[in-house]
Design a protein around this nucleic acid. Sequence first.
DNA 1: CAATACAGTGGGAGCGCTCTCAGGAGGACG
DNA 2: CGTCCTCCTGAGAGCGCTCCCACTGTATTG
Lengths: 341, 341
Amino acid sequence: MASTLEEIAELSGVSRSTVSRVVNNDPRVSEATRELVLEVVRKEGYRPNLAARGLALGRSNVIAAVIPVGFENVLSDPYFPSLLQGMASAADTNDHFLMLSLGEPGFRHTVDEIARQGVVAGVIFSASKVDDPLLERLVATGTPVVSVGRPYDERVSYVDIDNRGSARQMTTQLLRLGYRRVALIAGPSFAPAAVDRSDGYADALSGFGLRVDENLIYEGDFSEASGRAGMRTLLEHRPDAVFSASDRMAAGALNEIRSAGLRIPEDIALVGFDDMPLAAEMEPPLTTVRQRPHQLGAAAATLLLDLLADPTGSPKRVILPTELIVRASCGSQLNQETLSR
Amino acid sequence: MASTLEEIAELSGVSRSTVSRVVNNDPRVSEATRELVLEVVRKEGYRPNLAARGLALGRSNVIAAVIPVGFENVLSDPYFPSLLQGMASAADTNDHFLMLSLGEPGFRHTVDEIARQGVVAGVIFSASKVDDPLLERLVATGTPVVSVGRPYDERVSYVDIDNRGSARQMTTQLLRLGYRRVALIAGPSFAPAAVDRSDGYADALSGFGLRVDENLIYEGDFSEASGRAGMRTLLEHRPDAVFSASDRMAAGALNEIRSAGLRIPEDIALVGFDDMPLAAEMEPPLTTVRQRPHQLGAAAATLLLDLLADPTGSPKRVILPTELIVRASCGSQLNQETLSR
DNA sequence: CAATACAGTGGGAGCGCTCTCAGGAGGACG
DNA sequence: CGTCCTCCTGAGAGCGCTCCCACTGTATTG
């Protein structure tokens, strides 16, 4: 089992350089030699030494996923696992490795280290607080970065879903169904995704000639507890429908509505955002906007790899589609066809 | 900003070798020189190039977490995220990086690659099917491996919880509370953890002079659906208590018990295993065995690092403690004190 | 005081790869 | 038929590090 370029060269009677070219798909090799070398490579089960390659190249084929939020915050929500899986899948497909850097307090140190010195070719940054100073540091050091979710820094490429459009669409559905006092449990205003969803909500209202009633808006923090608290406040203003900017907040809202002795959707309609697994199992099942974290992760990795391949050019963005999932909680069993647009 | 050993050597007026010794804490350097060099290192923000070090050393400071199950299977369960976080935390503490390899079908290729050629110093293997052929391959190639959960292969070091003891303890509690027809919804027999829990259940019965009634045992696959199906079968044999080898199966069982019009714990007691977040929120809250995946992950990483530092010696194992969490579903509000042992 | 030990240091080689450059063989062209 | 170009190949250098070995100077020993 030969394990160096040199040995493969020896075995196939060519030079190290030629083997290197074959391995790297350099076109300047005759078809005959290529076949010959590939045969030996296959037979010997040769794999290039990545450390050596990284050293010679000055860069590596490892990309890092940086998730500064810490998983603890997202328990019960498979968002981050799915995201990671998507990244891992795309990285693997493109012969890259995925390195993980989570966000516990003491971790920052290592992230910087990772970003330096060719340990990692680029970074996928994924946090709820997208203006994280860490992101700035990465950008400042010239590390190729892709953000999951729109960051404040416009120089950063990112992947995202159409939060604003999806929220508009969802809110519009509620309005179409005849609801007129549509409340919003918004996400935290420091999160671009939350702001976008709030904007989409407002878009929909003005599309129906309605104006935003601040009494019908509550700013939560995406947590179930804040959803519950928000609902308690909002109920005082008698909404006939509630759009929660996340399913988790919707779950909290649902509990509060129950406690108030109201029925969903008869007394009040409730819709969410994310389509986390729990949504379908709520009582009643929750109408929501489906996003696919797995695809988002894969898109992020792919975008980063593109950036790595062609470092020039302006920041890129990739917006993934969402899907309106209509379930009982909005008081309609209209089929999707009717509902989408 | 100097970035190579050579430059630091230049700047501090010593040789490359000396700087290398300082950086690697080699004792054969005078205190004065060490101080001097360290000063320059600090001032220049020097970090060794890991690719170069990996190449020279023939190994790297990256460890891989291999999780062949695929996250999709474990949605709604933060087990793997917590595990990963624990690993990442321990790796970071010890100046190592964590590389992620998930288990989608096409991934195997890359895992092998990872294991070769000093990309990765060692592997943490974590799967429900612990006799995964991949594990064997890793062992065969001499890659240092630590398994999360007891593997069949005895040459493999592992971390685990005391599944058997915990299950015995839990079952014993049910028996102490007076239940005599204690059923078991077991995990799949290919999983050592499941087998151990079943053994613990049997231990407890025989401790009370009872014999195992095959009619009161159902083999599930840890999934909620199998818990529900198992419960349906078991109900025909009128158990007065059920020990489910996982909380997820317990959730399924709970639904089935409800559907049958029975009350928990009045008509039948139900206890689980894992203490996933959902357990506390069940109706009624679930008595269960708490394990801490975060600690498990950290222990796995630490063990692997130990192995790396001292490759000689026989396989090691680390068994982490569990905790009995008593909630309403077992029909007892006895305090923990009374219950443990 | 000579012989020996040893702490501290520097230089060279080499880890396995990629890249640049030089050169040979063969075809196209005037 | 000589010249030029193109295609393919090989040799050398170097990426930044660690290791081994050789060396110097001082301390220890009989």
